[in-house]
Amino acid sequence: MVIIMATIFWGQLICQKRKLSKVKLEYFRQHGGMILFDKLKSEKGLAFKVFSEDELIHATNNFDNSRILGRGGNGTVYKGILKDQMSVAVKRCALADERQKKEFGQEIIILSQINHKNIVKLLGCCLEVEVPILVYEFVLNGTLFELIHGKNHLKISFNTLLRIIHEAAEGLSFLHSYASPPIIHGDVKSSNILLDNNYMAKVSDFGTSILAPSDKEQFVTIVQGTCGYLDPEYMQTCQLTDKSDVYSFGVILLEILTDQLPLKLEGSETQRSLSLVFLCAMKNNNLDDVLASHVKSEESMELLSGLADLAKECLDMHGINRPSMKEVADELNKLRKLSVHPWLQLDMEANAEILLGGEPTSGHEIELSGYTIGENENQPINPRSSYYAK
Rank of each mutant, 00 (worst) to 15 (best):
N321F: 06
T7D: 02
F249C: 14
E167N: 06
I184C: 07
D309S: 14
L172Y: 04
A329C: 10
G70A: 09
M5C: 13
L257P: 07
S273C: 02
E359M: 12
H294I: 13
S248F: 09
G374P: 05
E331S: 15
E170L: 13
Q218E: 15
E130N: 09
L303Q: 02
G142C: 03
T160D: 10
R384F: 12
L175T: 04
I148L: 13
E128M: 00
L304V: 04
I210M: 12
D205S: 08
R384A: 08
F63P: 08
N284I: 00
S209T: 13
V88R: 11
E359Q: 10
D289T: 10
I381C: 07
D347M: 12
N62W: 02
L82A: 10
D215T: 01
I165N: 01
D259G: 15
V139P: 13
D187N: 15
Y78V: 01
Q379F: 14
L263N: 06
A308Q: 03
G370Y: 08
S66C: 13
K17M: 11
I57L: 15
G267S: 07
F206V: 11
L344F: 01
S157Q: 09
N61W: 00
N61R: 14
N321S: 14
I373Q: 04
I110A: 05
T60K: 07
P323M: 09
P181A: 11
K155V: 00
S21G: 00
F63K: 05
Y371P: 05
E331D: 05
G142Q: 03
